[in-house]
């Protein structure tokens, strides 16, 4: 099977969907002439021209709204935010316009749009450029929220997101763009709303998504090798709608759960997952559910402080050992 980077997997998804459907277009800052701030859109301007690959001014609110307006009359825009940090300027159009239009109009006006770009922290970019917005966006009915971890999932999920008739928030990882993985030849999609068991195990479930999948997998290897615990790694892939079925099946098997996410702890994705577990798998729990999150602080610049603020392999191992009563 060919091996592609996460970046190129996304590029292929965009290219294939734009070839497949003339209503799909890509709009955002630096997506055209510059070939994408993170080169996700490399070559698309050359292939599709400036009618369908549109460079915008730095005006997130405006071009997000223009995308929603185009979707209202039937086009299928892909709006790229250079990073999700800048998307805060456009939150009104995402929440008040895109998410609510179908409902407010009594079902008349669907919004088939994808808002995509990198979220979460990279390295030493400081407080304003290092944050994860999954839980904010997943709070809003009307939005779907996707955060793939692997090149395979990135391509398959982006294709599904573009074909979906609802607004989809597509959170990529800046630190993931160079990761490589196998991608099958030919057409495939990954459906929205399905979690994926990335590693099977019996002793503790580790729930994760996006960048923390790699953290969880590394922790799982060490837990097996050094601590005698077989962890099951469940990658949510889609935060909303949440695949509770896969999640609960795993917890019912292992009776213990650790949730890892990059975002802040308060009202985080993990809080929602814990809620599902305690309500639907209460009698299967042998230990309180553990959470490993980003530190509850704005991201510091200093390298050591930053490292301490991110969910680490060691923290996941510690949480898993607590959940399994090893300590």
């Amino acid at each position: 099977m060919p091996v592609l980077t996460y970046r190129d997997a996304l590029n292929h998804a965009l290219r294939e969907e734009m070839e497949r459907d003339p209503d799909v277009f890509l709009m955002g800052e630096e997506v055209g002439v510059y070939q994408g701030a993170y080169k996700v859109s490399r070559g698309l301007l050359q292939q599709f021209g400036d009618r369908r690959v549109i460079d915008t001014p730095i005006a997130e609110l405006g071009f997000a709204g223009i995308g929603v307006g185009a979707a209202m009359v039937g086009l299928r825009p892909v709006i790229e935010f250079m990073t999700w940090n800048f998307a805060l300027l456009a939150i009104d159009e995402v929440v008040n316009s895109a998410a609510k239009m179908l409902y407010m109009s009594g079902g008349q006006i669907p919004i088939p749009i994808v808002f995509r770009g990198p979220g979460g922290a990279a390295l030493q970019l400081g407080a304003q450029h290092s944050q994860a917005f999954e839980s904010w966006l997943a709070n809003v009915p009307g939005l779907k929220v996707v955060a793939p971890a692997t090149p395979y999932d990135a391509k398959g999920l982006l294709k599904s997101a573009i074909r979906d008739d609802n607004p989809v928030i597509f959170l990529e990882g800046e630190m993931l763009y160079n990761n490589k993985g196998e991608i099958p030849e030919g057409e495939y999609t990954v459906p929205l709303g399905l979690a994926d068991v990335k590693r099977a195990g019996t002793d503790v479930t580790i729930v994760c998504h996006s960048k923390t999948v790699a953290t969880a997998e590394k922790a799982a290897r060490q837990l097996a090798g050094e601590h005698g615990l077989e962890a099951e790694v469940v990658d949510l892939r889609t935060i909303r709608p949440l695949d509770t079925e896969t999640l609960l099946a795993s917890v019912r098997k292992t009776n213990r759960c650790v949730i890892v996410e990059e975002g802040w702890p308060f009202c985080g994705v993990g809080a929602q997952v814990v809620d599902e577990i305690q309500r639907h798998a209460f009698d299967d729990l042998d230990a309180p559910v553990e959470r490993v999150t980003g530190a509850d602080v704005p991201m510091p610049y200093n390298k050591l402080l930053e490292r301490a603020a991110k969910p680490s392999v060691d923290a996941v191992i510690g949480a898993a050992r607590r959940a399994a009563y090893v300590d």
């Binding site: 223009i66 307006g69 185009a70 086009l75 008040n96 316009s97 407010m104 006006i109």
Partner: peptide, 20 residues
């Protein structure tokens, strides 16, 4: 196409339809 109640939020939407 609406009926929008956040002052100014529908101005980009209208430009989006014009874009279409």
């Amino acid at each position: 196409l609406g009926g929008h109640a956040i002052v100014g939020s529908h101005i980009p939407l209208a430009a989006g339809a014009a874009f279409a």
